[in-house]
Amino acid sequence: MTSDPVRDDNARRKAIPLFDGDLARRGYALNAMCFSFNEEANRKAFLADEEAYCAKFGLTEEQRDAVARRDVLAMLEAGGNVYYLAKLAGIFGLGVQDLGALQTGMSVDAFKAMLVRQAEAIPQGARVREAV
């Protein structure tokens, strides 16, 4: 079979997965709610009445359930984009390492240690360079 770059890139979008048109359409309501969290008043309104706030943005049942369970992978599956979801995570005081731990099933400490260990793959002499 000849290689078809469009087909190959579309396959990558599904496999990784990447935030493409399918996910952007599916996730619109959830992402719109998360985008609203740029404003403090909206973060407070969410905390005061989560159910009502989610309803206001018309979250699907799948999205509502994923948010209620604080299930990041389910939010992604429901079309959430991590840049917007990070604003929701911020409400709960969770950073990207907490999110990483939640998504990989590691403890936060184990996730952080995994990040640090990746420095071992940097070849000697590749870190710093300054012209003389």
Binding site: N81, L99, Q103, T104, A126
Partner: peptide
């Protein structure tokens, strides 16, 4: 990579 099961992925070979 922030999202998904591959969260935490880095690639020094590609970066370099």
């Amino acid at each position: 990579q922030l999202d998904g099961p591959r969260a935490g992925f880095m690639n020094p070979e590609y970066d370099l």
